[in-house]
Design a protein around this nucleic acid. Structure first.
Lengths: 190, 190, 190, 190
DNA sequence: TATGAATGAGCATTCATTCAT
DNA sequence: AATGAATGAATGCTCATTCAT
């Protein structure tokens, strides 16, 4: 069995450490030790720590979104899928012990000049927003305008559920969020 | 005119720096330089950087809450005050250029052992939740049970509005949140 | 049109970088990037960074001397050619913004063991000295002994004019040197 | 007997290493090891490696000039003192095995942004030029204008003698320079 | 001949904290 | 109460060179 590439090992190690311990709490030395890689080898593949984080975030985005998609796959309508996404939050956040969102976490205490990271975070959140909007657009009972507005409202609730459950180390904000979401989707269809 | 105390100057400097640049981005040396205080003098008043942050957060809590109270003072009913709190978010966050919530920001990239800081953040959020609940309890049209549940839902929306506006560097999540809040307060009173 | 060889491209890139930015300031990575050459390919043609520098210096020597020859070609006598060489210094050093002599520059901050480079620098300076002496030997009014001695004196002035104009970022040392040189050539012929 | 201060030990160690091995060849780690000082202690006294070098150069300037003054003290006239300064070069450069001028050496392979160092080098050379000019001004047989011009010519010769003896690892350029200097001072007084 | 991948040793600098006075 | 001096450990990053293919 072949040892995986330097690049892969670095990303794997960094992804784990960045998410578990935070971006600022994770040093290059930790990453290379965990990845069993020479420092200069690592810097041949990544220009900077920020670059590693950018790759980590992009990868995290795809993994997270596809896990979400998979989780709600059994639901039939867009509304049901959206509501189920709160159950996804619950499963996920309980599983990681309420560490919270890797994207939110990395952006809140970041040196000013880390533009790549900020862009990745925005990218992820915009994709998630789009995911919600698309589900609503497929629902015949909802107009395009309503879909746009509703999706932003739900997005806010999702984000709030994540950050507040992280602070409280408890799932209740997720269930409160879910209830709000149901309310939004119900009253809007009147 | 007497120079303010070492302790006060440290807190003032640290408060500014922690909020503007972030906890991890702010070094002890920056703080003592800004505060015009000797390093050892500082450590006579605070055991550690975390201790300074704890005091900063407690003080920030009181300032923030009282500014909120003041902002919504002109409103008569609890519901109106709660809805107006989103306007407060808007005024505040636009003013600070969407730096976000000092409590959310400090908790997301923190060494594991910083318990004092985590406790201050929880304290603040619990106080804010209580503030909302109390306003609802004063409304005769809302039952105690409803007040409890509604307040958690609104709290989630508030938190989401803050973090998402910070990521987007835009006020739209605040207005989406306000809309959701109005919806919640309206449908609940049916 | 064929791409020039690896060797040539490396030398060209290194020559530019060594002279413009300095030997220590120029990294192997810069060279191979500028030369569009793989690192290992480069090391197939040159044993070390020092070896590249040795080739650069030898090539620089020929280019510099032939430009000097060309510059003074219109002058008839050896004395006139030597005096004109200060005008050459001026034209050259103004053109390169007083970067100074590539040979002087490389030798002053060098690891102890870089013998090849030291030898190249000595070679160049000896050739220049010889060039001056030969011009004087062709002058009938000057004895062989005088030519030998005069050439060393003029050489010292030339070197001083270069290094001092580099420090001062100004041409005045070149003109002072020229004046001294004229003086030497005049008084000696008495 | 008290151990000398951190600052003094750092300067002493750095001065030795910078001059003997070169600025680029000398690392911070070497300096602190030689000085027996903790790294952070060193950085409490000096903002950067460049700052250490600036102090080293300033101190070197005073030491070098005062040794020169002392060396030529026995001479009576300004002209004699200036001529004797070439003997000083000889004594000095033979003693240090033709390492050359610490000011010339540091400036020829320096990162672009090291302004402080460049300024110290210019300062030293300007002071030396002034020293020569002042000696000539005290000589009644020389006009102020001549003193100004002669001093620049002699300065060029001095610099050339230093750099060329360094390259050749031999004293002959110093004696050639001395001869030129005598010539300049003699012919000028005609 | 050519090259992508890898490396150990080193770089200058900053960290939060403690000590001696 | 106040402070200048000192520190070990860690920071992110670059160096010239070599290896396997």
């Amino acid at each position: 069995m072949k040892k995986s590439s330097v690049r892969d090992r670095v990303i794997e190690a960094a992804s784990y450490l960045f998410y578990q311990n935070g971006y600022n709490q994770t040093g290059i030395n930790q990453i290379i030790e965990e990845a069993q890689v020479a420092k200069a080898s690592m810097y041949q593949h990544f220009r900077s720590k920020e670059d590693i984080a950018a790759v980590y975030l992009r990868q995290r985005h795809y993994n997270w979104m596809s896990a979400l998609d998979k989780f709600v796959a059994s639901k039939e309508t867009g509304k049901e899928k959206i509501i189920a996404s709160f159950d996804y939050l619950n499963e996920w956040l309980v599983d990681v012990n309420f560490i919270g969102c890797g994207f939110q976490n990395i952006i809140t205490d970041l040196p000013d000049d880390h533009k790549k990271i900020r862009d990745e975070v925005k990218f992820h959140k915009n994709e998630l927003l789009q995911w919600i909007e698309n589900l609503l657009l497929n629902d015949e009972s909802i107009s395009a305008d309503s879909a746009k507005e509703l999706s932003t409202e739900i997005m806010v609730v999702l984000e709030g559920a994540i950050i507040l459950s992280q602070i409280q180390k408890d799932a209740w904000p997720i269930f409160s969020g879910k209830k709000t979401c149901i309310n939004l989707l119900t009253t809007s269809s009147i």
